[in-house]
Amino acid sequence: MGDSQTWTAGPGTAERARSVLATAWSCTVTAHGGRDELVGAHTVTDDGRVILQVPEDSALLTAAICAPRGEPCAVLEFADVAPVPVRSRIRARLWLAGWFAPEDGRLVFRATRVVLRRPSGAETVGLDEYAAAAPDPLATAEARLLTHLADAHPDAVERLTRLVRPESLHATTRVVPLALDRHGLTLRIERTRAHGDVRLTFHRPADDLAQLTERIHVLLAQAAATATCPRALQRQRADGDR
Score class of each variant (00 low, 15 high):
147 T>N: 09
116 L>W: 09
125 V>E: 00
120 S>M: 09
125 V>C: 02
170 H>P: 13
172 T>C: 11
135 P>F: 00
153 H>F: 02
159 R>I: 08
125 V>D: 00
118 R>A: 12
167 E>Y: 08
112 T>V: 08
162 R>D: 00
166 P>Y: 12
138 L>K: 03
164 V>D: 01
166 P>R: 15
155 D>V: 13
144 R>K: 14
146 L>K: 00
129 E>W: 10
122 A>D: 05
167 E>K: 11
139 A>R: 03
134 A>I: 07
123 E>W: 12
163 L>T: 04
167 E>M: 15
122 A>I: 12
158 E>R: 04
164 V>L: 03
150 A>G: 12
166 P>K: 07
140 T>I: 14
141 A>I: 10
150 A>E: 08
113 R>W: 14
123 E>A: 15
123 E>V: 10
116 L>Q: 04
124 T>M: 14
131 A>V: 10
122 A>Y: 06
154 P>S: 04
146 L>E: 00
170 H>C: 15
149 L>H: 08
116 L>H: 03
146 L>F: 01
126 G>Q: 06
115 V>G: 01
161 T>D: 00
121 G>A: 11
135 P>H: 01
136 D>C: 05
154 P>L: 12
167 E>V: 15
142 E>W: 00
122 A>R: 06
159 R>M: 10
168 S>F: 15
157 V>F: 04
162 R>E: 04
116 L>R: 05
169 L>D: 00
127 L>I: 09
116 L>T: 08
127 L>A: 05
160 L>F: 02
141 A>Q: 14
120 S>H: 10
169 L>K: 07
167 E>F: 11
117 R>N: 15
143 A>K: 08
155 D>T: 08
164 V>G: 01
156 A>I: 11
143 A>G: 07
129 E>C: 12
129 E>L: 14
165 R>P: 06
143 A>M: 09
149 L>F: 03
